[in-house]
Simulated assay, not measured.
Amino acid sequence: MSICRRRSRAAGFSLVELLVALVLGILVLAGIAKVFINSKQGYRVQESASRTQENIRIAVDYFGRNLRLADLWGGVEPAQVGLIGAPVYNGPGGCENAWILDTASGVRGYAGGVSAPLGLPAGCLSDYVSGSDVLAVRYANPDAYVTTAQLGASGAGNALKTNGKYYLRAKVGQRAVLFDVTNDANRLRAISVDIPGVAEDGVLSYQYQTLLFYLRNIDFGRGPVPTLNMLRLQSDSLQAEQLVDGIEMLSFSYGVDSDDDGQVDAYRNAAEISNWQQVLSVRVAFIARGDELDRYTDTQQYPIAADRCYGPASSACSLKYSVETARFQRRLVVKDIQLRNRVRG
C-alpha cells in the first residue's frame, strides 16, 4: 500500500494545478508584453523627437543659407540691373508671372491665405497648407560663376542652362544685365555690348536664382504630411522640390528700416510692407511636428507671429491643428536672419 501511495503522489500535476500555472503564465506574459509595447512606443516617440530636431536644423539651414544670399547682384544695386530680351515665364499649375525675374525684390513675402497667398496665381502652389506664409528669394548664385570664354563657346546655351538658363553679368559698382543664355543673340550681346563704355575686364557672370518657399501637404503613404517645399527656377520654369517633412505651419515677419539708419525699427507682416527694399532681416517662425503619435494630447497655443497664434481646434487661434493630429509632439522655432547684402557698413 505504501508503494502505491508513493506512485500516486509522483504521477504529476492535477488539472487545477495546470490551469493555475497557465493563468499565472499568461499574466506574466501579458505584463512582459505590456512593458515591451510601452518601451517600443517610448523608443518610437524618442526617435520621432530626434528626427524632428534634425528636421529643424535642416530647415533653419535652408532659410539661413538662401536669405544670406538674397539681393546679391555681383556688386551692384538692384536698380542697376537691366533685362535683355523678353523671357517666357512658366511654372507648375499656371504659375506664370514676371516676378520670377524681379531683381528689384531680392526678398518678397506673401501672407498666408485660404487656398493661395494674395499676389500669386491660384494654381502656383499645389496642395498648399492653408494659412501658411510664402517667401520668394532671388540672387545671383556665387557658386555658379562662369567665365566670358564659357559664355562665348560654341553650344554655350545648352551647356550652361542646367539648373536655370538665366544669367547675370555684372561690373562691380557700375551696372549689370540679366539675360537668357540659350538665346545666342542676347548671350553674345551680353558679352560684348551689355555694359556700354565699360571694358570686359572685371565683368563677372553668375547664374540667376529664384526660390519660392512654402508648405505643401504630401502623402507618403500614411496620410498627408505638411512639408517644407520649394519652387526653384530650372531652365525657364519653376520646379517643385520637397525639402523637410513635418513642418506644420510657417510664418515670416520682416524687419523694416523705415528711417534709413541701417537698423531694424519694427517687424511687420507681408501685408504691411510697401517698400521691400527697406527690409533688413527676416524672422522665420515655424512649427515642427513629430511623425509618431504620443500618449498625450497637445493643447498648447503657439505664438507663430505677433498677430497670430497656432493652436488646437478648440482654441481662439486663427491658425489651428486638427483633432486627429493633436497627439503629435510639436516645437515652435523662431529665427531672425539678417539680409547681409542690405546691411550697410
Rank of each mutant, 00 (worst) to 15 (best):
G106P: 11
R108E: 13
R108T: 05
G109P: 13
G109Y: 10
G109I: 10
Y110K: 09
Y110I: 09
A111P: 10
A111Y: 13
A111F: 12
G112A: 08
G113S: 03
G113N: 02
G113F: 03
V114C: 04
S115P: 05
S115G: 13
S115V: 13
S115I: 14
A116C: 09
P117M: 09
L118M: 08
L118T: 15
G119K: 04
P121Q: 11
P121R: 09
A122V: 09
G123E: 04
G123T: 03
G123C: 04
G123F: 12
L125F: 02
S126M: 03
S126V: 07
S126Y: 03
S126C: 01
D127L: 08
D127K: 05
D127H: 13
Y128M: 01
Y128G: 02
Y128S: 01
G131F: 02
S132W: 00
S132K: 00
S132Y: 01
D133Y: 03
D133W: 01
D133G: 04
V134W: 00
V134N: 00
L135C: 02
L135I: 00
L135R: 04
A136E: 07
V137I: 08
V137F: 07
R138P: 07
R138S: 01
R138H: 03
Y139Q: 04
Y139L: 01
A140Y: 00
A140E: 02
A140I: 00
N141R: 11
N141V: 01
N141P: 11
N141Y: 01
A144K: 06
Y145N: 12
V146M: 02
T147A: 06
T147P: 03
T148A: 15
T148M: 14
A149F: 12
A149N: 14
Q150S: 01
L151R: 01
L151S: 05
G152M: 11
S154H: 07
S154E: 15
G155A: 09
A156G: 04
A156Y: 02
G157Q: 04
N158W: 09
N158G: 13
A159K: 07
A159G: 08
L160R: 10
L160W: 09
K161Q: 14
K161L: 04
K161H: 11
K161A: 10
T162M: 14
T162C: 08
N163K: 08
N163W: 07
G164Y: 00
G164H: 01
K165Q: 02
Y166V: 03
Y166F: 10
Y167S: 08
Y167H: 14
Y167L: 15
Y167F: 15
L168K: 08
L168G: 12
L168P: 12
R169V: 09
A170N: 10
A170S: 15
A170T: 06
G173A: 09
Q174S: 15
Q174C: 08
R175Q: 15
A176F: 14
A176E: 13
A176M: 13
V177Y: 11
V177R: 10
V177W: 13
F179G: 10
D180S: 04
D180A: 04
V181P: 03
T182R: 06
T182M: 09
D184H: 11
D184P: 12
D184Y: 12
A185N: 12
A185T: 15
N186Q: 15
N186Y: 12
